[in-house]
Every structure is written in structure tokens, then in C-alpha cells.
Design a protein around this nucleic acid. Structure first.
Lengths: 226, 226
DNA sequence: ACGCCAAAACTTGTATACTAGTCAACCTGA
DNA sequence: TCAGGTTGACTAGTATACAAGTTTTGGCGT
């Protein structure tokens, strides 16, 4: 995952962070679960210190909620936080596609095209997992095409907040086809240097999660705040 | 300053963080300065532990550069990091003004108007410090007007990267007037629900730093990476 | 004088002990 | 039976000791 900034060396903290991150985003650790520094330290075979630092990082990503002297929880879903995260992602990605449409970085279009090809494959075979991975990569490539690879780190951090929620909803073949069509349209607009069109499609693309989130809110309210 | 997420209690770490943050952004601690956990701990009268956590936070904001087993530096300026930070701010603030222009939060316009009034006062009296503070507040109010107060936290984090650089350049009365005029224009466009115009002015507003940064790069290259 | 090597004086990473605050269960009294 | 207070078992925050790695420095040999 390597969310760490400039990992000049892999520390225990990094390993613990990655392990917990995975488990939280995959919902192996459910929202609201109490999680203790001591317990994690014991179970992973480290001391409290690196666990503590990993906790701090995860809390900064709004994945843990540290209540001093009380307990630390896997942060419950929050409509507010989710809305903020989605806003941030939308804002950044809009500017990304605008700049990518204006002056795409040389070579980027080729990579995007080949990603599209792989996506088509995944759609045809109905391989949702592969499509999910390719989706991740596509948006990353888009940032690179805009000359702002660092932007993807922020997008990714905000995605996490939403991704762990979407684990609760199945990706149907139809959804996959729709998302794929969006990607194609975005790339086409970008290659036409049509920033406005790219913007428009991207907005629609990201808003497709609206009903999904609403649905999960009604079916899994126990995992939400309050 | 209170950059901490949900400060339910003020800890030593918080105090140390705030202290260092202030000193770094004000350039009391120059880029490239070596800074040691032990030294800071001794000088502030704490143990290494909370200092260490404060270091971690500052490193996440790209204000410190921790080189394991080697040393920790006040992070030198980096054109790359500055460009990324400015991109992020631009992206977020563009969407902010768009949404504020579309459906401003009730009551927000009034606050913005009164901020403008105070800014005019500062411009007339030539009080650059007051104007700087009001500028900070204006952009914060804009986020509130868009219904996304959390967005300002991100903007603020990215501003820090640039602000400590701009300490090196004097704010002339002419600059102040220009920035003020921009603010007025943004608010007017917003009140007219003219998102495109607001966007346009904002882009120009934020790009006014271009020559300032270029100038500092030539005059203070020693503070930059490499 | 110069180059190399070794040791000492740093650095941050990790482990552990201790402090202080919070909560829940249980006991005591009515 | 129930209300209230005390106690103990948690929690995270802090201090300190130790480990592991890097840099600097100084001395030795050439």
C-alpha cells in the first residue's frame, strides 16, 4: 500500500500501519470495533510504541477514533466525513482532468488507452476484482497525465473513507459497464482537449455512488455515527 | 492554530507541535536546519516521546524531513512540493467557489461582506499584518459559504507550505490592493451566482504568487532542495 | 601532508515502566 | 429493590532505558 510519505526505510510502524489499514478498509475490522494498543501489540508481536504511532496515522486518515484515556475505535461511518472526502476527491480530480485535457503529459495517453483495453477485458469476463484494481489504476494514470502524480495520493486517502463502505455493496455487471463507459468518455474528451466535457462526465461518474451510499446508510445504519 | 483533528484534550504533543509549527512557518527555523528530538525535548522541558509525535505530524505536513537514524531537518523548500500544494489548493478552492456561487449557505454572504469591509480598512491604513489575517479568514468564510468548512483545513495545510516561503517577500500596498480587488470580484461573482466568473478570478488570484515564488527561488536558492 | 580506518558521539527506532484519567461492576446502605 | 459511592480493571499519555544505524573525528601508518 505504501501510503507513507518518503519511506526511506520500512519500520515496524509501517508494517503495523499497513496491516491495520488493510483490515479496516476490507471491513475485517468493523466500524465501531474497540481496538487497543496493548492487544494489537501483543497479537502482532511488537511493543506498544510502534502500534501507537500507527494508530496516530490511521486517526489522521479518519479511520480510527482515538478517545484519550477511554478507548480507540475503528471510526464509524459518518455522512459528514464521507461527504467531505467525496468533495475533496471531486475537486482534485476535476482539476486533474482539466489539466490533462489541456496539456496531457507525453506518453500518458498511451498508458490510459492500454488501461481501457484491460478494463474492457475485465468487463467482458465479469471479473469485478480485476476491474476494481484497474479503476484504481485508471484514476492514478489520469493524475500522471495531468502531471500531478502527487494528487493521486490525496485522492486515494479520501477514497479509502468511501471504499470501506462500498465493500458492503456488490458490484453488478451493469454497474461495471457503466463505470467503464464513463472511463472511455473521459479519455475521449481528454484526447479531444475538451475539458468541459471531461468535467461533466467526471461529475456524473463520481456521483454514481450517491444511491449506493444512501442504500448502505439505510441497510447498515448500525455502522454509522450516533 | 489547532490543526489537530478532534482535539478532545490538549496534550504535550499538541503544545510542542504548535510551538514548532509557528517557528517553522515564521522561518525562525530556517529550511535545512537540523533539529533533534533530544534537543527540542530538553529545551522545551518534555521527554522525547511527545516531541517525537509532534515531529511525525510535522513531517506529514511536509514541514520536517525525518531521515531515520540520520537526522531530522526543517524541510527545505521544494518547487515540486510547492507546485503540488498550490495545485491542491487551487483545485479545492475552485470547487468551493463554484458551489458557493451555486447555492451559498444562508448568512455566509453577510459575513463575507463584513470581512470585505474590514479588509478595505486594512488596505486604507496599510496594515499588512491585519490584511494577511483577514485574507486567511476570507478564504475560510468562502469554504463555509460553500457548506464545506472542512475544505479549509486542507487549504490551510497546503497554504503553510507556501506561506513560510512568502515570509521572504514583502507585501507592498499595491499587492494588497490587487488582492483586495480580487476578493471583491470573487464575492460579487458569487453573489451573481456566476460560477464561471468566480472561477476565473480565483485562478488569477491564486496565480499572482507565481512571480513571487520565482523571485524567491532566484534570491534564496540556498533554502531549496539540491 | 595525505589517506584510511577505527572508535566515539551523535541520530532515530523500539521496548518497557509508570502516571493519570475513565468507566463499569460491585458492594453497602437505606 | 434501588441509589450512591468506592474500588479495581481498563484506557491512552509520558518518561526513560536500550538497540541499531550513521556521521564525524582523530589518530595512525604511509
Amino acid at each position: 500500500m505504501a501510503l507513507s510519505n518518503v519511506a526511506e526505510r520500512t519500520t515496524s510502524t509501517d508494517l503495523i500501519f499497513d496491516s491495520l489499514y488493510e483490515r479496516i478498509v476490507s471491513l475485517e475490522l468493523l466500524p465501531g470495533t474497540k481496538i487497543s494498543e496493548t492487544e494489537v501489540a501483543k497479537s502482532l508481536g511488537y511493543s506498544r510504541q510502534p502500534v501507537r504511532e500507527a494508530f496516530t496515522r490511521l486517526a489522521n486518515l479518519n479511520l480510527l477514533l482515538i478517545r484519550p484515556q477511554r478507548a480507540t475505535l475503528v471510526r464509524p461511518f459518518s455522512l459528514e466525513l464521507i461527504a467531505d472526502a467525496r468533495f475533496m476527491r471531486l475537486a482534485i480530480e476535476l482539476e486533474v482532468v482539466r489539466q490533462a485535457a489541456a496539456i496531457p503529459v507525453p506518453g500518458a495517453v498511451k498508458k490510459l488507452r492500454s488501461s481501457i483495453k484491460a478494463q474492457r477485458e475485465a468487463v467482458n469476463t465479469g471479473d469485478t476484482q480485476a476491474f476494481h484494481d484497474l479503476d484504481y489504476e485508471f484514476h492514478k494514470l489520469m493524475c500522471e497525465a495531468a502531471g500531478r502524480p502527487a494528487a493521486f495520493q490525496i485522492i486515494s486517502e479520501n477514497k479509502a473513507q468511501v471504499d470501506r463502505l462500498c465493500v458492503l455493496s456488490l458490484t453488478s455487471p451493469e454497474t461495471m459497464e457503466t463505470l467503464f463507459a464513463d472511463h472511455v468518455a473521459i479519455l475521449e474528451a481528454m484526447m479531444d482537449h475538451n475539458a468541459l466535457r471531461a468535467e461533466e462526465v467526471l461529475r456524473q461518474h463520481l456521483s454514481r455512488l450517491d444511491p449506493v451510499i444512501d442504500a448502505i446508510y439505510t441497510t447498515h445504519r448500525a455502522y454509522f455515527e450516533h
